[in-house]
Each structure stands twice: as C-alpha cells, then as structure tokens.
Design a binder for these strands. Sequence first.
DNA 1: GTTCCTGCAAAAGCTTTGCAGAAGA
DNA 2: TCTTCTGCAAAGCTTTTGCAGGAAC
Lengths: 139, 139
Amino acid sequence: MKESYKELSALLANTGIRTSYQRIRVLEYLMSHLCHPTADQIYCSLHDRMPALSKSTVYNTLNSFIEAGLVKVVAIENNESRYDIRVKAHGHFKCEACGAIYDFGADIDNIEVKDLDGFQISDKHLYFKGICPRCLDNG
Amino acid sequence: MKESYKELSALLANTGIRTSYQRIRVLEYLMSHLCHPTADQIYCSLHDRMPALSKSTVYNTLNSFIEAGLVKVVAIENNESRYDIRVKAHGHFKCEACGAIYDFGADIDNIEVKDLDGFQISDKHLYFKGICPRCLDNG
DNA sequence: GTTCCTGCAAAAGCTTTGCAGAAGA
DNA sequence: TCTTCTGCAAAGCTTTTGCAGGAAC
C-alpha cells in the first residue's frame, strides 16, 4: 500500500484529475486509511506535515475524487460525511457506542428487490447499526 | 389514514410521549406524507395553519419520535435528514435528477452477510441511487 | 500563456441549545 | 403543583463559495 508519487499521479491522470501535491497526499491518506475518515480527520492528519493546507482544499479534493468515481461517500449518519476509497461493494456497520465504522461482506449487487422496474440504479449502499463486539465486552 | 386526535394521542401515550398539539400535528403529517419529508418541509407545511410553530419544536418533536422508535431517519444524503414513519423494512431509492425518494421492496432482514459474528445489529438501511423512470423519460 | 487549483475568509445550511413563559399530567 | 414542552434567538458544525495569487499543463 506504499504507492509512489508517480504511481498515484498516474492514477489521478487516468481519471482525468490534474496532479497536485495536495491531491496526492489526500489520495495517499485514503489508500492507507481504509477506516472511512471524515474530512476533518484527513485535514488534521495532513495538516501536521502541511501547515499551509486548508480545509476547503480537502473538501474540494474529495469532491473531485467523488465526481471521478475514485471515492464513495459513506452517509451512514447525517451530520458527518465519511470517505471510502475501496471499490468492491461491501456493507458498513456503525457502532453506536464507540462510533467506529466496520466493513462487512455482503453481496449488495444481488439483493432481490421489487418495485424498481424502469429505474436506472447507479449506486447501492447497505448500512447497519448496532453495537460492536468490543463495546459489548466492555459494556 | 385520517386518525382522530384521540387515536394519535393514544399512540403517543403508548410510547411514553406526552401529548401536545404540535406533536399530534407532526405525527399526523408523517402518517399522511409517507414521502420522507425533511424537517423543513414538515415545518413549512404545518406553519401555514400554525403560524406560531417554531422549527426547533419540529426538530425536538422528531427527535423524541426517533428516540421512542416511532420514526426512522433516512440518511441517504449527508446534508438533509428525512423522516419516515413506516415500520416495515424497505429500501430507499433517491433519484439524483429530481431528488425524489422512492420506497422499494427488499428483504433487508435476510441479506446474507459475512464478518459480523458477535455484532449486535439494531438497525438496517438499504439505499440506492440513480435516475427514476420519470426523469429518464423527460431526459 | 491558459487553465485550473489553492488558501483564506466569509457565507450558507441544517441542527442543537439556553432560557423564560406556557401547557400538560 | 410539578414537570415537561414551546418558541425565540443565538450558537455550533459541516460544507460550500468568491476571489486573488500560484501552480500545472
């Protein structure tokens, strides 16, 4: 998971996104943190090594990644956007005690649905909530 | 779907919520508008007949309904909470062209999942996005 | 050289909170 | 009577936007 600047730059070029130092760092962060960070977490972490980085750049960058299909938004909660660069379809579980978000395997593309004849589906999300094993043990 | 004040009041009492005129009207609105309204839509609609109604009351009321399990939040988008009083599990489809949210049938409780041994699951949501038939025709 | 991006500040939008007066039990 | 709710205003948060200087192509 340690891609070089050149590789990441090529990845961006493939999706039609111009290279910039900030974008490379955000991309790098997402690829090494698959834990669905918030924009603020990304900003705070990168800010240590890039004091000039601004939060709007983080948002702009994330939005261009989303538009390019590189990143998906995890909208499991309304007041916080979380960003996920993994491509394979999977579900998200949010622990209501500790707030952590876990991935879980689910064959989302083959869920049997009714009432959607004639709909063009572009995006599928499966969200579960509850308590994770760690919190169950500690509770 | 035209419940009386008395019936709605009893419904609230069953869930441990005190009766008030405002709460009855919000509940009534939710029961007659299964289209997943936003807090603002509820507020604007009720405000015509209740000029003194405030938005914080709508939010407070919705939050007490949620806590009581009467209402679920549809978090398909991050910047807007939508409220749904229907109990039976179903999926939500959001049209990215017109913004409408449709219900669709899906056996959410029987989706096959991996990696969740030991997790206590209390809530399941299935969200699809795309273009609805009406917008496909008009586009 | 042109176009697009960054960073700053300010603004926008949704939701929550504090408090005094009012209504419910 | 005592508790809880309402409405107003203000604040809190996350996210977006406008603009001037700067970087990418």
